[in-house]
């Protein structure tokens, strides 16, 4: 058993392929779910699970690349291992640019597949942690009052209290109080920590 956490989602329109892959991956110790089409997979929905996608490129209706794009737009970027019956270079470049972990041509050896899945799951795990941190940062950010949020942006911009007070038309003392509350609510000790946390929360620094 690989020990990496996560579910492997296999999407292939070809019954025999998905059946055999399911068999192999189960034998390799993964939790596996198979889907006959991209739509079937999308209907299942994802609840922030850790996992990766083994995805056939050529499928009728919605193909692999289109599913990749759809997932990316839905902000659930599962790591994807593409498999294809006939891999041409433009397709693989497109897939990799869009964030695919691997691109395998059928028939592939199990070693290649399992390594690719392992990499993908590892990345999924990392991304999963990253997403958790971001959520926490956003949560903390959401506890700030509008005035505190305003002060925060100025702090992130590297302004001194006196400058901030002048900009906001208030006293330097008041700004100092707000700043203390921000640091407290965001649970950071230094401005550097504050900046890093805000990055995770998606605040873009100007």
């Amino acid at each position: 058993m690989s020990g990496t956490e996560g579910t492997v989602f296999v999407v292939d329109d070809e019954l025999s392929v998905r059946k055999s892959l399911g068999r192999l991956l189960k034998a390799a110790g993964y939790r596996v779910e198979v889907f006959a089409s991209a739509r079937e997979f999308l209907q299942r929905g994802l609840q922030d699970e850790v996992g990766c996608l083994v995805l056939d490129v050529q499928m009728p209706d919605l193909n692999g690349l289109e599913l990749q794009q759809a997932l990316s737009e839905a902000d659930s970027p599962l790591p994807i291992v593409f498999i294809t019956g006939h891999g041409d270079i433009p397709t693989s470049v497109r897939a990799m640019k869009a964030g695919a972990t691997d691109f395998l041509s059928k028939p592939f050896h199990e070693k290649d597949l399992l390594e690719a899945i392992s990499r993908a799951l590892k990345r999924a795990g990392e991304e999963s942690c990253g997403r958790a941190a971001a959520r926490e940062a956003k949560r903390r950010l959401s506890t700030l009052t509008p005035r505190e949020h305003e002060v925060l942006l100025h702090v992130l911009a590297g302004e001194l209290n006196k400058q901030i007070a002048a900009t906001l038309g208030t006293s330097e003392k008041t700004v100092k109080v707000h700043r203390g509350r921000v640091m407290h609510k965001m649970r950071v000790q230094s401005v550097a920590d504050l900046v890093r946390l805000c990055e995770k929360a998606g605040i873009r620094l100007t």
Partner: peptide
């Protein structure tokens, strides 16, 4: 050619995966 390769590679992939699954089992 591309589609014929595809048509042949599909069953080959399935065969290989099935065989290796069996080995693991």
């Amino acid at each position: 050619t591309a589609s014929l390769a595809h048509e042949i590679n599909q069953p080959l992939a399935a065969i290989l995966s099935n065989a290796q699954a069996a080995q693991r089992l």
